[in-house]
């Protein structure tokens, strides 16, 4: 049990930034992100005893995270989208210290994030996996779609996101 817990915390520690980015791509409401993160962490914790190393840890984790995110959205839709209270107990900490850089990058990133949040779920999953640096083969392993389907979707989504960022820069 102890080693299982250490393993779990190791995975969470290692993938925490990626998981937060994934959560942000699904959840526009900052108050609900914490809850979604915890749902994903719970899914990882419960699935860990079944993990036999048939796939890489990374692809296994992304499958769980995306699937839990989708089913959490579905459950919320059924529960009549009311605001969930954010637990006070878990502390979140921002790590950047240069405010100018934060502002410039943040605006462009926010524009991209908003565009990603509006994508259809399948497109969102594929682009998030791609932006996290997974190869086409790994994305195929996670999503179950063929490499050619992934490539054609990615090309279209990339164009759309690039366009959104350019427009945001022009507006400035």
């Amino acid at each position: 049990m102890r080693s299982e817990q250490a393993r779990f915390l190791g995975i969470i520690e290692q993938y925490q930034p990626a998981l937060w980015r994934l959560v942000n791509s699904y959840e526009a409401d900052p108050g609900r992100r914490e809850d979604l993160f915890q749902e994903i962490a719970l899914g990882v914790w419960q699935s860990l005893p079944r993990f036999r190393g048939d796939s890489s840890e990374r692809t296994w984790l992304y499958r769980i995270a995306h699937n839990i995110a989708i089913s959490t959205l579905e459950s919320r839709r059924r529960r009549d989208t009311r605001e969930l209270p954010m637990p006070d107990s878990v502390e979140r900490v921002g790590r950047w210290s240069d405010p100018d850089r934060v502002l410039v990058v943040e605006e462009r990133r926010e524009a991209m994030l908003a565009a990603i949040q509006e994508l259809a779920p399948v497109d969102k999953q594929i682009i998030v996996l791609h932006l996290e640096g997974l190869s086409y083969q790994e994305i195929e392993e996670v999503s179950g779609f063929s490499e050619s389907a992934i490539a054609s979707r990615l090309s279209r989504i990339r164009d759309r996101l690039t366009d959104v960022i350019r427009k945001q820069e022009v507006r400035k």
């Binding site: 962490a41 107990s89 878990v90 990133r109 960022i165």
Partner: peptide, 18 residues
């Protein structure tokens, strides 16, 4: 896009609380 995506402010969570 990838650079922009990964520039997201990292958030830390207290592991014991988690």
């Amino acid at each position: 896009l990838r650079q922009l995506w990964q520039s997201d402010i990292n958030e830390a969570i207290d592991q014991r609380e988690l």
